[in-house]
Simulated assay, not measured.
Amino acid sequence: MATPIPLRIDFVSDVSCPWCAIGLSALEHALERLGGTVQAQIHLQPFELNPQLSVEGEDATEHLMGKYGIGEAQVEANRAVIRERAAALGFAFNIGVGSRVYNTFDAHRLLHWAELQGGRHLALKKALLRAYFTDGEDVASHEVLVRLAGEAGLDREEARRVLESGTYAREVRAQERFFQQRGIHSVPATIVNGTHLIPGGQPPEVFEQALRDIAGVAAA
């Protein structure tokens, strides 16, 4: 059996980005299809869609209407498209009227810490995405974040200490700047081996073909 081709994948995303949830699910589906032909190491990189938001957040519909200059009908039409794409990947998207959008900086700090704890960042990321998009939870709440850390197999008390102390704020800011300075201004952005960009929440087959091509180049 051929040796798997190692691939470093930097997945730049936000916790409150619906296309990021779709993109991560599609990426994982693609990696499953590739089987043992590649050995992917996924690193989650921070991006804040709305860094100016307060802890209390804002009504999601009003926020989108103001940010993109669209009406409520268009917001709901966009959500219907996202809901359908997410469902095809086995992800339940329940954002709708009455939902809120939150500041995600503390969630990114916790994700940074989680990667240092034996690579539990993916489990935490998926727990955060489900909590926000499926269950409508407040992902700025420290209580919610601590609970999700525990559900992802992380130490709850250590997670609480990280959140309350402000630890890893500098590191997260540095990573945000790093990718912004390299032209990443919308997410999700999937960067393979530091050079190949797959933009947006692509379908699994697009990720699969791109990863096959990149692995082929790496093998050669």
Rank of each mutant, 00 (worst) to 15 (best):
N193P: 07
R120V: 06
R160M: 11
I70D: 06
L7A: 01
V192W: 05
D106L: 06
G194N: 03
R161H: 08
L111Q: 07
F105V: 02
A114H: 11
R173V: 14
S54C: 01
Q180K: 14
V172E: 05
G194Y: 05
P204V: 02
C17F: 08
L53M: 02
S186T: 13
A131G: 00
E56H: 10
V97K: 15
A127Y: 02
D14F: 08
P51N: 02
A169Y: 08
F133R: 03
L53W: 01
Q209H: 12
V206I: 14
E28P: 06
G200T: 12
A87D: 13
R130K: 13
A149K: 06
A26R: 06
A60Q: 15
P4A: 07
A86R: 02
A174D: 12
E28R: 14
L124R: 02
H121G: 12
L27A: 02
L110H: 04
L110M: 11
G216D: 06
E157T: 11
T3K: 13
A123D: 10
V97M: 14
A88V: 01
A80M: 15
A26W: 00
R147P: 08
R100F: 03
Q52N: 10
D106R: 13
V55T: 10
V15E: 07
T195R: 15
W19A: 03
A2I: 09
L197I: 08
H121W: 09
R8N: 13
T195Q: 15
G96P: 06
Q74G: 01
A189Q: 10
V38H: 13
R33Q: 15
K125D: 04
A2M: 11
A219W: 10
A149R: 05
G57Y: 01
R173Y: 11
A2W: 10
Y102G: 01
H112D: 05
Q209F: 11
A220C: 09
V146A: 08
L197A: 03
R83P: 00
A215G: 05
R182K: 11
E76N: 05
G216V: 07
A131L: 02
N193F: 08
E28F: 11
L27D: 06
A159K: 04
Q39N: 12
G71T: 06
N50T: 13
L110P: 03
V162N: 02
E158C: 00
I184A: 04
L31G: 01
G118K: 13
K126C: 01
R170H: 12
Y102K: 02
R170P: 01
F207Y: 15
V217C: 05
L145D: 04
Q74S: 07
Q180C: 07
L197N: 05
P18S: 10
E205T: 03
P18E: 07
